Amino acid sequence: MSTNKFPAESLRDRKRRQARERIIEVAFTLFIERGFDVVTVDEIAQRAEIGRTTFFRYFSDKQEVVFSAEDDFLRALNEAMRDTPTEPLRDLTQALNTSRRLLLAICTEAAHYPSQYEVYHRLVKKYPELEDRHNRKTRRYADLLETHLIDHCTPPAIAILASQVTIACYQAAWRLGTHDATAVLREANDAFDLLLGTPPHDPED
């Protein structure tokens, strides 16, 4: 997904990034044209004008191509985590406000690439094996949120509740926003407003 975040990129690194992005672009096009289940790695490689071996330098299988943005999401989450204040987060409201900020960081990253997100959403909704992986990824984020809160002195019961509620807000946004990444960001933000009883909150803040 990320295309403008390589300020000190060498020529070799730039070529590798461009090759990876080309594979993703071609694969997503083929998945929409013909269906994820019937497209093969060989077809992706041929359309991308690379060898099969080159494909496997970047991805272990075609499922991994669908989830190629996960590194960007984790990077955005880790950056947001580093901005968490050092003071303890002991109550549920503090925990939820922190979890809200972390979730919106991920949603904002997705909203930077609306076309790719749209294809991703359509594929996940259509193919059970992709939906299963998406759900497992979502649970992983819940675990990361929980651990982060506990690391900031949140009592375990509150940390677990806050992380699970945060994922519920995301799942509501996923359903309401459907394949529009900007709408998902907005709906996730609105879900927290409803939950916390707060005035409308600008996700860009």
Rank of each mutant, 00 (worst) to 15 (best):
E43F: 02
E43N: 01
H148P: 00
T29V: 02
P128M: 01
L185E: 12
D91M: 08
S163A: 15
I44T: 13
A111L: 01
A181R: 13
I24C: 11
S2W: 06
L161C: 06
L185P: 06
I158N: 06
E187T: 06
R100P: 00
D72Q: 12
C153A: 15
A69D: 10
A110Y: 03
K62P: 01
A159K: 04
C153Q: 13
G51C: 02
R133Y: 03
T98N: 06
D202K: 05
D71F: 03
L11M: 11
A181Y: 07
E187M: 14
A111W: 01
V26S: 04
Y170L: 15
Q46F: 13
F31N: 08
D190P: 03
C153R: 08
D91I: 10
A76H: 02
C107R: 03
Q46V: 14
E118L: 02
V66D: 03
R175T: 05
R136I: 09
E9M: 06
L161H: 11
A142P: 03
S10Y: 08
R17D: 07
H201Y: 13
M1G: 11
S99L: 04
V124I: 14
T178L: 13
T54M: 13
T147A: 12
I150A: 06
L104G: 12
H112S: 15
D61N: 15
